[in-house]
Simulated scan of single mutants.
Amino acid sequence: MSKTIAITGASGFAGRHAVAELLPRGHRLRALLRSPQTAALPPGVETVRGDLADDAALARLVAGADAVIHLAGALTALDRSGYFRVNEHGTRALADAALEAGVPRFVHISSLAAREPQLSGYAASKRAGEEVVRHRMAALNAILIRPPAVYGPGDRGTLPLIKELTRPVAAIPGPAGARFSLIHGRDLARLIVRAVEGNEQGLHEVSDGQEGGYGWPDLIRTASAFRGGPVRAIFLPRAVPAAVATVAEGLARLTGKPGMVNRGKIAELYHVDWVARPGGLALADPTPFAAGFAETVTWYRAAGWLPQGRGTDTRTASSRTSQ
């Protein structure tokens, strides 16, 4: 059944995947965008100019909508309040607008980082945004989705890690014993479609279904197989990226432009358990990391984001062989 869906964050990596999954199913999309003319969304997506601090724009966004997908959020900020301004206060404004308009479904995309709010301003603000929705769960018919690290063609967030894994020696900013879940951007979008079209409520941690998540040896084996040669991992002592983060934060304050490297992000990277807990939404045929890694590296190289090198994409994203 076709729905009118209001969406935030449509121009981001996960948002573009969600749009690509929703449009072919006949849904009508209305996207909140700061700069609609530069978003380059597919034809047929209605746009509303504004942001999460613009109450009038939020009212236009949700008017007559059958569902809201909230993907927008602050990944970087100059200080703790900057994260909360978007991830908590912006979520509250959107949720209240949806309630006022009588929207019957609210899909909130959070982050696995929200499980550990003590680690960073980002993590704490994502947890606070979840609490906003939790307190309105029944009224919004809401579902909370916590994805782990999301990767895939077009993603700049995981590009530094993928780049390291294509080298003979990979410098890893994290503990050797860490375990973590992953999910391909296309699979996250498929779960978002399921959430929009379904009626599940509550909190769901999601992943590609790899039981127990991955360890660095798993990723190194995948990268080595793709290269056709060994990849050796060097695990950086936390003090090294922490020092870089301190300098980066100082530069960010001087320029007024926050970056991804900060002490909070380092605390997240050196946390040892980012494995999604079982029992959340799941796909019957998720993309395994071996196939997703090959597809992503091949795309990065074709786009000029990575230099050409060893390794050929001999598997497709629809390959269901696990590594």
Rank of each mutant, 00 (worst) to 15 (best):
I7E: 06
S11E: 04
F13K: 03
G15A: 15
R16N: 08
A18Q: 08
A20L: 07
L23P: 03
R25W: 06
R25P: 06
G26A: 13
L32M: 02
L33A: 08
E46S: 10
L61V: 08
A65T: 03
A72R: 09
A74H: 03
G82A: 08
Y83T: 02
T91R: 11
A97T: 01
E100Q: 15
V103E: 03
P104G: 07
F106T: 06
H108N: 03
I109C: 01
I109L: 10
S110A: 09
L119Y: 04
L119N: 04
Y122C: 01
A124H: 00
K126S: 09
R127Y: 08
A128L: 12
G129L: 07
G129D: 02
H135I: 00
A139K: 01
L140D: 10
N141Q: 14
G152N: 10
R156G: 14
T158C: 09
K163P: 02
L165P: 13
T166P: 15
I172A: 15
G177A: 12
G177C: 13
F180N: 14
H184C: 00
A189V: 03
R194V: 05
E197K: 10
N199H: 15
Q201Y: 02
E205C: 02
G209E: 01
Q210D: 00
D218G: 00
T222I: 15
A223P: 14
S224Y: 05
F226T: 11
R232T: 15
L236W: 04
A248R: 01
E249S: 03
T255F: 01
M260N: 06
V261P: 04
N262M: 06
I266K: 08
L269A: 11
V272Y: 08
V272A: 05
G280S: 10
D285G: 11
P288H: 11
P288N: 09
A290E: 08
G292R: 00
A294S: 15
E295I: 11
T296H: 06
R301M: 04
G304E: 09
Q308C: 02
Q308K: 13
T312E: 14
T312P: 06
A317Q: 14
S319V: 04
S322C: 08
S322R: 08
